[in-house]
Amino acid sequence: MQYGAGTAKAHDSATGGPLDDFRITSEPYYRPVAGEVALFEAAHSTRMPIMLKGPTGCGKTRFVEHMAWKLGCPLVTVSCHEDMTASDLVGRYLLDAEGTVWHDGPLTLAVRFGAICYLDEIVEARQDTTVVIHSLTDDRRILPLEKKNEVVKAHPDFQLVISYNPGYQSVLKDLKESTKQRFAAIGFSYPEAAVEAEIIASEAGVDRNIAAMLVRIAERTRNLKGHGLEEGASTRMLINAGLLIKRGIAVEAACEVALVLPITDDMDMRDALQAAVAACI
């Protein structure tokens, strides 16, 4: 089924609806790296479920926000975690003085009224929670609410987006193969140096030289992936460092706080990283 390819949706113009809180009104800054914008637009036109894959802090969430804004869709975001239950996603009865009232969960809200539902770090949730998305990710596009005895047919504008960090997964915490195969995946990684510097300069408000220096530092940490570090410094961490520098913190101290200390507890690794930071300044 094809949907309107343009950015305006019939539903959008109706404000005062239940999705008002989820509309994005001002442009979230996003610097395209490869063809991801076009890819997302194409997938969105068929409401294909999308998986964003990549290390933490390299722009997945910002990208979704940007695309939601660009396409004029409301965006319902859920940060997944271990203690989440299926009810947290689809909704539950709550008790009030008269009796019980059904409250839609965030997923149901998006399904019913037509928003993008973004499940961030979906692997953190247990598998008895994530099973609810299965019926939404095939042709049926339905969400059964058993307790309510209702089957919600997805609004034509509903789309499911999930994010997934392939790095840390162990055998215990991973998406089932059958789940993964329901999605189209867009890969994210750290942008190339010049682009990353541009992003940092813009987001942190620091000048190009400092941004370039921070990227140099990040490269050093990324060289250590698998050699003592799980991940190198993410773009987000570099922006944090930039923000501190902009507020007057000395460069070495800002890097230690924002880049070195968060990613390792090992004293020798810290020492080596601090020396590497010094080499870049």
Binding site: R220, T221, N223, L224, H227, G228, D268, M269, D271, A272, L273, A275, A276, A279
Partner: peptide, 9 residues
């Protein structure tokens, strides 16, 4: 301390 430093460069 030197091994990671060398790899980082």
């Amino acid at each position: 301390r030197l091994k990671p430093f060398l790899a980082a460069l």
